[in-house]
Design a protein around this nucleic acid. Structure first.
Length: 832
RNA sequence: GCCCGGGUGGCCGAAUGGCAUAGGCGGGCGGUCUUAAAAACCGCUGUUCGAAAGAGCGUGCGGGUUCGAAUCCCGCCCCGGGCACCA
């Protein structure tokens, strides 16, 4: 048959193998025998179904599928499920615009996602699939909410919260970036509202310390550490006596530097501090303070956060007493003090704090240095011995003084050690329609009453109007809202807020383990077989939000006894993939530079698209898309398939592998094959170096092109080709399965991962690099077993070497066995 | 300002103390096939000098350590990301 008849046709090959996998349920795993042998849970972050998948989805599932296949073929039973983060604002905003029910647009998007994921040939266990918007699923989201509620981890409080005026809902702190709504980009407003929170701050310490137990990228851990923001210090009490001498008021402040307490020269409160107006009342500053507070509360939050903004503030006309030296410190209100952190009031030590220094200069306040430094420059925030403090502390190093001063405060009842966090409780209620209803009934007599478990799910009712009008659209479903109180039977009303969609994604990975369970959210014994996720894969944009919330849920659920106690972390290992760019920019419809996976797969096939995405560069880095690069990948896969098809037809009936001592090409290509097996295996198991793994298979294939293979035996060629197909299977499953089947009649996914044979990795000779003064001058073949002396002799035996050595004094000879000899010389006559 | 990444041919990248540029893309040159061209396939291609053999130079910049540095150390520059009035 002429070579031209072998035509690589992914449009025929890919659906054919996809049918086999679908018909046979190849990637399904049973919970019952999960206990037999090692298991692995490979998970990519679940997609938000909107429109159709984009190139980022293709990348994350290409990475995840490669890992899943590699784990399977190295002897693990792999759980690799799929689902949809189906609640959320885009579907709802679409509904507001078009009137189409969010469920309809979401379900349509899910269908499209399913179609494409199957078309990509991703090895999913489809029996476990679900969307978080299905009542059979959000029933358990509500159940978890109630578990948290019953144990005090979910609570309602009135607080200053972030209000997104465009989305018309509140947002969690984590969803506000630079003072703007993460999604809408609108400047958020501060509103005083009663909202539902999860008590994530109870877990601040564990969320911080247990980062050490997981294999996550260091920068993600750092981001979480910064977000949690733990600071050690002391709480110190400053007493005000001049507002009402009969009833002094104690104001606690948090400071990380109690060692500088003697240098406190004034005292500042946040504009939001509830006592500010009361303190100023009756003083000459009263009107000015009121105006300042009003202005601060309405001003743009981003402006206020600007470090370089000049310090502003107003005196309160009152004083507090510094507990260590009895000095009266003037009180101020200033917007550089934040109500959300610490106690909303600070002691100001201008000599040793940049911000206090700037304020002191602006208001001409005294500056007292209490720590010696290398020079006279203030402010000084470094360490040193104390000065200008009390006699018993002066001269002490400030670290030691810090402890001594806190001990003194404790004895006097004026302070104690304290830890502060930047982390705030997670605000989870949203005044929007398309989310999980909060399963609470508000009763005028009983208060907030949980919906009984037997009444779950609280099904999201249909409404006429999805537009939020400062309250949840659910409030308009009056028949739904009016209920009897489950406790007293009296007239009551349902909670009409829905939950943040990040609640849904905080536990979906548990549900996959036991997705068919209708009796419980999951069976802890089943979860114990799969959890924690062995390899989690997703975008770094979730470094704080989703990844912090999911860790909190896992710890809380374990504490409540719903998870085995040893499961403290959801994701044992995390990989964050980079974005695919085009011409150095994000792909977006606005820029018109979008590459759609659908057209890509239609044109080149799924194998080419997936392999190219992995080959383009290290998967954790951003990568620039190139149309011609894709074509190169298709050429390569086509070459593999054609050569395999040819070899299958033309070189039958030879043992595989075959090494004919009379044909040196056999040994050469066999060595290359084992080199590639070794290289791909370590690239896959140590790091996610898919790009170099694919490059190694390319090199291998280049060795056996008809022009290069020379007189190699048919059996050796078939071994090389089937090895190449086997190694490529995790990236390009269809063409690899087809080529492997043509060559061997076997199904590659049922074969164990190839193992490199030592005998072929170790060669009898190697190329010895010969250097003079570190410069390469020659290369010669040397026996692998050669002694140092023999290697040195080879160096001196080289004609090229002697040209450079002759006439000079040999100072020394460096020998690196298996690699090189470096002859160090000093010229006979020093060069001018 | 602080904390992470990163900077290597025309482009994406490989190499983490030992042959710099594996693999791919693109352009150029040469070849196979063809009546011819295109396509496809094969070979060469960092740069300077040189007819060639070969030599010099070359991993953001400047120093240093070392027999030997893209790799380690010190000081800069640039790009990307995160945090930032958090007391």
């Amino acid at each position: 048959m002429p070579a031209a008849d072998y035509h690589y046709d992914p449009a025929e090959i890919e659906p054919r193998w996809q049918r086999v996998w679908a018909d046979e349920g190849t990637w399904e795993v049973d919970n019952d025998d999960a206990g037999e042998g090692p298991t692995s849970y490979v998970l990519e972050m679940l997609p938000y179904p909107s429109g159709e998948p984009h190139i980022g989805h293709l990348k994350v599932y290409s990475v995840g599928d490669a890992v899943a296949h590699f784990h399977r073929r190295t002897g693990r039973r792999v759980l690799h499920p799929m689902g949809y983060d189906a609640f959320g604002l885009p579907a709802e905003n679409h509904a507001i615009k078009t009137g189409q029910h969010p469920r309809d647009s979401t379900d349509a998007a899910i269908k499209e996602f399913q179609r494409q994921f199957r078309r990509w040939g991703v090895s999913i266990d489809w029996t476990r699939e679900f969307g978080t918007h299905e009542p059979r699923v959000y029933r358990w989201t509500q159940w978890i909410f109630l578990q948290l509620f019953k144990h005090g981890l979910a609570y309602q409080k009135e607080a200053a919260v972030n209000w997104d005026p465009v989305e018309e809902t509140v947002l969690a702190n984590e969803q506000v970036v630079d003072g703007r709504g993460e999604r809408s980009g609108a400047l958020v407003e501060v509103r005083q509202l009663k909202q539902w929170f999860f008590r994530i701050t109870d877990y601040a310490d564990r969320l911080l310390s247990e980062l050490d137990s997981i294999r996550w990228p260091e920068h993600v851990k750092t981001m979480q550490r910064n977000w949690i923001g733990r600071s050690e210090g002391a709480e110190v009490v400053f007493r005000n006596e001049d507002l009402d001498p009969a009833h002094p008021i104690d104001y606690a402040v948090f400071t990380t530097r109690p060692d500088t307490l003697f240098g406190a020269t004034f005292f500042v409160m946040a504009p939001e501090h509830p006592d500010v107006l009361r303190l100023a009342a009756g003083t000459e500053h009263e009107d000015e303070v009121r105006a300042y507070v009003n202005h601060s509360l309405t001003a743009d939050k981003t402006m206020r956060g600007d470090v370089d903004k000049p310090k502003t503030g107003v005196p309160l006309g009152r004083t507090v007493t510094n507990p260590v030296n009895g000095k009266q410190l003037p009180m101020y209100v200033a917007d550089y003090v934040l109500m959300e952190y610490g106690t909303g009031a600070i002691m100001a030590v201008p000599a040793h704090d940049d911000r206090d220094f700037a304020f002191a200069q602006a208001f001409d306040l005294p500056i007292t240095r209490v720590i010696e430094g290398p020079d006279d420059v203030l402010p000084y925030s470094g360490d040193g011995p104390l000065m200008n403090s009390a006699a018993e502390f002066d001269g002490l190093h400030n670290r030691a003084a810090l402890e001594a001063i806190v001990q003194w405060l404790e004895r006097e009842g004026k302070g104690h050690l304290s830890v502060n966090y930047r982390l705030r409780d997670w605000l989870i209620s949203r005044q929007r329609y398309w989310g999980t209803p909060i399963p609470i009934i508000h009763c005028p007599t009983c208060g907030a009453v949980p919906v009984p478990d037997a009444d779950l799910p609280v099904v999201l009712p249909d409404v006429e109007d999805y537009k939020p009008r400062g309250r949840s659209p659910l409030a308009a479903a009056e028949d739904w809202v009016r209920v009897d109180c489950p406790q007293c039977g009296g007239a009551a009303k349902r909670e009409t807020d829905t939950m943040d969609t990040f609640v849904d994604s905080s536990w979906y990975f548990l549900r996959y383990c036991d997705a068919a369970n209708d009796e419980a959210a999951w069976d802890p014994a089943v979860v114990a077989r799969w959890m924690p996720v062995d390899q989690y894969i997703g975008g770094v944009e979730h470094a704080i939000l989703h990844l912090l919330y999911a860790r909190f849920f896992t710890k809380a659920l374990a504490d409540l006894g719903h998870l085995p106690a040893e499961i403290q972390e959801p994701f044992a290992a995390l990989f964050t993939q980079g974005m695919i760019l085009r011409d150095g920019e994000k792909m977006s419809k606005n820029r018109g530079n979008v590459v759609s996976p659908k057209t890509l797969v239609e044109r080149y096939g799924a194998d080419t698209a997936r392999s190219y995405i992995l080959f383009i560069g290290p998967p954790d880095q951003d990568a620039d898309w190139s149309d011609s690069g894709v074509e190169g990948m298709q050429r390569f896969l086509g070459r593999l398939w054609r050569m395999s098809a040819e070899a299958a037809d033309e070189l039958p009936d030879h043992p595989v592998p075959e090494i004919d001592p009379a044909r040196p090409d056999d040994e050469r290509i066999m060595r290359k094959a084992h080199w590639a097996i070794d290289k791909v295996t370590s690239n896959m198991s140590e790091r996610f170096n898919f790009n170099t793994a694919i490059a190694a298979v390319m090199e291998l294939l280049n060795e056996v092109t008809p022009a290069k293979r020379g007189a190699a035996s048919p059996g050796a060629v078939r071994f090389v080709l089937s090895s190449a197909a086997s190694l490529l299977f995790p990236f390009a499953p269809h063409v690899s399965a087809d080529a492997y089947h043509l060559l061997t009649g076997e199904r590659v996914w049922e074969q164990p991962w190839p193992s490199a044979d030592r005998e072929f990795l170790e060669t009898p000779t190697f190329e010895l690099v010969l250097q003079v003064n570190g410069k390469v001058r020659d290369r010669v073949q040397a026996p692998s077993q050669a002694s140092r002396e023999e290697l040195v002799a080879l160096a001196h035996g080289s004609e090229r070497m002697t040209q450079f050595i002759d006439g000079s004094e040999v100072v020394k000879e460096i020998v690196v066995p298996g690699k090189l000899v470096n002859v160090v010389i000093r010229p006979a006559r020093s060069a001018v």
